[in-house]
Design a protein around this nucleic acid. Structure first.
Lengths: 241, 241
DNA sequence: TTCTTGTCAAGAGCACTGCTCTCGAATGTT
DNA sequence: AACATTCGAGAGCAGTGCTCTTGACAAGAA
């Protein structure tokens, strides 16, 4: 769609410029409210108040509360994706385990810095809200794509340990799912490595969610950095790095 | 507190009986609403409507919305704890890996059956709601206590593999946390085993959360039972079982 | 330059929420 | 029978999402 691109690229008329500016203002204020009060308490009226405008005016820019939620969702996915990309790129090129740990650390640090956004992306779904897949899947898959990219590069470099948990077999139905993923992304990872990558993925988010969502309790773990580093190290071993 | 116990045990006066009955009715209706509309949309007015009573009447039984949330929280923790206890007890006595898998399956099945309750217990915290620790910690720690109990029994039986990830060391700060846990629960597990148990714990909930919260997407994994079984098997190996 | 067209903010209004207060009725106790 | 407690009903306040109408304003066309 070249027309849409150009429309986005050059907001020639001052009207469009003003409109775009108020929209980013709305998203910015929405992010602040999200951070302070949480996703379920996100109120268009409160955003309007902070914007210095009456409530009905924001409906000129945002169709409804759900669309603002979608904008914040995309915003969060992209910010997290940028953080992860930068962290992985800063790791040594051939050090795949280091890249894996850098990815995990980047996700955790972003989650701790933006707990409300993290909860919106990876926590319990907001009741009555269904994310529009056509707008959120692309930014929402950036981290996992990056992760399998690390595994794939390690595999091609011959740095992926294939014999980690020898006794575990993969049933055919699961193998079919993994084959579909492999075909969809053009990977050469064997089933075992792919499955362990999925486990590492979910485990990282499990550890972060426990910490961010307060499941550990107030004083069960004081050395949380060290705990997470330990979990990352073990998971890297599990994944074969 | 014997007086409180007797008060609970024999609701002699019919008034107290009726009061207790309406309270369990409120919790029951609250659970239904939780399952249908989610935690953030839990409305005392709607509960009152279903109870056939005006909204202000429920405030005679429940102090506010947060207390109803607390009651549902305790209810959920206990239901999950009962499921886990039953599943673990049904596993063969000396088969510690089997008990571990039974625990994981029980948690997952309950989570799939009661996704809203699972979200309330382990998902993003409800904004503005702080669980009262003195009432929720006891039921909230049943599952993790059960899990470390399995590890402890395996350790005493000499069935715990100590050399799983040899290269990973535990820094002193983390060791201090683990020592406090070990002392608090009267365990004899070494640091490595305890830390890997925590990892297994968070990883199980990470896998279940991804599935229940819809992070996998609609059709990435069709063989979800097999995927979870695979993850359980790998995690049992990681934990040393 | 005037006129038309489209965009915008404002405000009223509907239905909903949590929560508090008062009042009268029902209930159990003495 | 008299008293005290408990309970439900209803009104009311402040907040929410969202819709609709109204009037002001600015951009482009004649």
């Amino acid at each position: 769609m070249p027309s849409l691109e150009t429309k986005k690229a050059k907001p020639a008329t001052p009207r469009e410029r003003a409109r775009a500016q108020t929209l980013v203002d709305i998203v910015r204020i929405g992010r602040e409210h999200l951070a302070v009060h949480g996703a379920a308490a996100l109120s268009l009226r409160a955003v309007a108040r902070d914007l210095g405008v009456v409530s009905s005016a924001v409906y000129r820019y945002v169709q409804n509360r759900d669309e603002l939620l979608t904008l914040l969702l995309i915003d969060g996915y992209n910010e997290l994706g940028d953080q992860v990309d930068a962290a992985v790129a800063a790791a040594p090129e051939g050090d795949f385990a280091g890249q894996f740990r850098a990815l995990g650390r980047a996700v955790r640090q972003w989650a701790i810095r933006e707990p409300a956004s993290y909860a919106l992306l990876f926590g319990s779904p907001v009741p009555g809200y269904q994310a529009p897949g056509e707008r959120t899947t692309a930014p929402g898959t950036r981290v996992i794509y990056r992760l399998v990219g690390i595994f794939e590069a390690a595999q091609r470099a011959g740095a992926l340990n294939a014999e980690v948990s020898p006794g575990v077999v993969i049933p055919p139905d699961l193998a079919a799912d993994l084959e579909a993923i492999r075909a969809g992304l053009g990977l050469s990872l064997p089933d075992e490595a792919l499955a362990r990558g999925v486990l590492a993925w979910t485990s990282i988010f499990g550890a972060i969610s426990f910490e961010v969502f307060g499941q550990y309790g107030p004083d069960t773990f004081k050395a949380r950095d060290e705990l997470f580093e330990h979990q990352l190290a073990v998971l890297a071993g599990v994944a074969g790095l």
